[in-house]
Amino acid sequence: MNPVPTAPADLRRSLADHLRSTGAIKSDQWYEAFAAVPREAFVRAFAVGSQHGPVHLTPEDPRWLSTVYTDDALLTRFDAAGVPTSSSTLPTLMALMLEALDVADGNRVLEVATGTGYNAALLSHRAGDENVTTIEVDPDLARSAEQRLDRAGYRPTVLVGDGRAGHPDGGPYDRLIATCGFTGIPPTWLEQVVPGGIIVCPVGGGVVRLVVRKGGTATGAFLPDAAFFMPVRGIGDNGTPPVPPPLPHSCSSRPCFVEPTDLLDDGIHFLLTLAVPRAMSRFTYDDAGDIAAVHLWQPDGAWAELRHGIARQAGPRRILDTVETAVAAHKAAGRPPRERYRLRVDAGRQWVSVADSDGPTWELS
């Protein structure tokens, strides 16, 4: 029996072996990056999720180092209410996205959302410090990440700013990767990535890989794996209210063929993250513990409740009308997986559709 690795270098190699065995890593270059870059240098204190809530670990805990090298997302920052606001991404997902980025020698790379700095270190190991620029909206996170990168021996360009604007002064870029969640591709990115360049970005509940074309257009498909990232933030962003708004005084009511349990289907849920962007949902349960209803709401005040086949809606848009169209299209297309969905960006507008389908398209915002 092989001994369980305990030294950092052995743990790094073990994680890289795991990522290669699952197919997340396919190239020698990314294998060597994961085997070389010390994840523990970027996540000194963190929490991991459990059925009883987050478990917080520090270097003083004997479980700390081994947990650093598990294939888990590590929560590294929380707001005053205890909601996670920054994390070190699941290594499998990091590897899948980096492989999809297809970095070649000499490529200039822009990373949006520096976070802990671990992903920037992996990029620097592969592409070279001089070819990597990373941008972070939170000045404290950017400063801490730059210090961690420096101590680990990596010196990419670390900037403070809104990643949605990119960094035109450092372009053009051959590759752009984002590590926070978006509802669509910022058009400015297409101006900063060369024709033939690649953008890898979390959109909705998935990750899209786009190839940029001349004239500010881009097309691509989603990766097959689910992905849920911290949402992109700008200065002063308030985001979606975390709890449903008060019940409107007046709302429309009609029959609806969608059942609340339909929203538990992974394929439907993925499509709804695109068709109903920035929506929050909450299920309520009956005395027997079964789902009785689902509430949906958006930042602009749109509100919906689906209960026993009855849709109630209010606000500036009818959320459940869109939900019905999406559910019907998903079923009519044979419940397609993520990789059958395509994203096209053209003239500042962008649409998602199912490949080889005459069904509807959904315009992203």
Rank of each mutant, 00 (worst) to 15 (best):
M1K: 11
A9P: 03
S14P: 09
D17W: 05
D17F: 01
H18I: 05
L19I: 08
R20K: 15
S21I: 06
G23Q: 06
G23K: 01
A24L: 03
A24N: 06
A24K: 02
E32H: 15
F34V: 04
F34P: 03
A35S: 10
F42K: 07
A45C: 15
S50F: 09
P54A: 03
T58R: 09
R63I: 07
L65K: 00
V68P: 02
V68L: 04
L74S: 05
P91Q: 09
T92H: 09
A100P: 02
D102L: 05
D102K: 13
T114A: 05
G115Y: 02
G117W: 00
S124P: 00
D140F: 13
A142T: 02
P156F: 00
T157K: 11
V158C: 11
G163D: 00
G166T: 02
H167K: 10
P168Y: 06
G170R: 14
P172W: 04
Y173S: 06
T179N: 01
G181W: 02
T183E: 15
G184F: 12
L190N: 03
Q192T: 07
V193L: 09
V194C: 13
V194F: 06
P195V: 06
G196K: 09
G197R: 00
G197C: 08
I198M: 05
I198P: 07
V207M: 07
L210C: 06
V212K: 05
R213P: 01
T217R: 15
A218F: 00
A221Q: 12
L223F: 05
D225H: 14
A226F: 15
F228G: 09
F229H: 01
G234H: 15
T240M: 12
T240A: 12
P244R: 00
P248H: 05
H249Y: 13
S250K: 14
S250R: 14
S253G: 12
S253K: 14
R254L: 12
C256K: 03
F257N: 08
F257M: 11
E259L: 12
P260D: 01
D265T: 13
T273C: 07
L274W: 02
S281H: 08
S281V: 06
Y285Q: 10
D287H: 13
H295V: 06
P299K: 05
G301S: 00
L306G: 03
H308L: 11
G309T: 02
A311H: 01
Q313Y: 10
P316V: 00
P316E: 00
R317Q: 14
R318S: 10
D321Y: 08
V323D: 01
A328K: 14
A333E: 10
P336W: 00
D346K: 15
G348C: 05
V354R: 10
S357W: 15
D358Q: 13
W362M: 01
E363D: 08
E363L: 12
E363A: 15
E363H: 11
